[in-house]
């Protein structure tokens, strides 16, 4: 039923740390690998080796440049998967009842046996978290790895989402936001976890930790923090067979041995 539950007993979701993510796409790959071989239809690729490859993914990494006037630009890798919104518009628009939000843990899922592939839910999601599979014709989205987190056939340390388990940097955390003492609630409280596009009113469960402020290394053209230490050498006159700078120093240092 596409009515949303009033409240959910748990609010399972992810904390994504934008300070730590290195943009390696490991979570994207492991997400695809786990989800193409488990819950529902496989995540197809179309024209995979051709000129315009296109595939279904439940998790995507954008990379942004953030720049403040007079400061150096900063690169932010930005993983994006379903935020399992409390007020999920993708669920209420669904005409077939295929989309639903679980009362017990807040996970938003698609029942592929009912989905008619109209795509309206993907239109209703502000975050681009739903993709219609081009071969199966049904809607695919992040399942929060519902088939891992409760799966007693897996060793305990694997009972977390595939993306969380695989992230080499530890940028993704899984837990229950309804519990104020959970790892994710505490992380989010400590680091000012934020909602994406809050003005859409979707009340996302997932939180993003903003990048920590970077130490200002002195404005635009002073990017080389070693420069001051090398200054005395740099200032020495450089001639054709007497190179200056670091090479000059190296040259002299080797001479002395």
């Amino acid at each position: 039923m596409t009515a949303l539950p009033q409240t959910t007993q748990k609010k399972l979701g992810l904390v994504i740390d934008l300070d730590i993510c290195v943009g390696c796409h490991a979570c994207v790959t492991n997400c695809k690998e786990w989800n193409t071989s488990n819950y529902g239809a496989p995540l197809s690729d179309v024209d995979a080796y051709g000129a315009e490859p296109m595939g279904t993914f439940l998790n995507r990494i954008h990379t942004y440049e953030v720049k403040q006037e007079g400061c150096n630009a900063q690169t932010v890798h930005f993983p994006k998967s379903c935020l399992h919104c409390d007020d999920a518009p993708c669920v209420t628009v669904c005409p077939t009842g295929a989309s639903y939000k679980r009362e017990e843990d807040g996970i938003v899922l698609v029942n592929e046996d009912r989905c008619m592939g109209c795509g309206l839910c993907a239109w209703a999601c502000p975050y681009g978290a739903r993709e219609l599979d081009q071969l199966a014709g049904v809607m695919k989205k992040c399942t929060l790895c519902v088939d891992r987190i409760y799966n007693e056939n897996l060793p305990e340390e694997d009972r977390v989402p595939a993306c969380v388990r695989t992230c080499p940097a530890g940028a993704r955390h899984f837990g229950d936001f309804a519990d104020p003492d959970s790892n994710v609630s505490r992380l989010s409280a400590e680091r000012g976890g934020m909602e994406l596009m809050p003005e859409q009113g979707t009340k996302p469960v997932n939180r993003y930790l903003p990048p920590r402020p970077k130490t200002d290394i002195g404005g635009e053209n002073k990017i080389d923090i070693l420069a001051p230490f090398l200054e005395p050498v740099v200032n020495e006159e450089a001639t054709q067979d007497q190179p200056g700078g670091f090479l000059g120093w190296l040259d002299k240092a080797l001479e002395k041995i």
Partner: peptide
């Protein structure tokens, strides 16, 4: 507002998540 990065400065896309258009 989409990225929540506004307080750090002006945001622009540096690299898209995929090389050709998706769904």
């Amino acid at each position: 507002t989409a990225t929540g990065l506004g307080n750090l400065g002006k945001v622009r896309l540096l690299e898209p998540p995929h090389t050709s258009p998706n769904y």
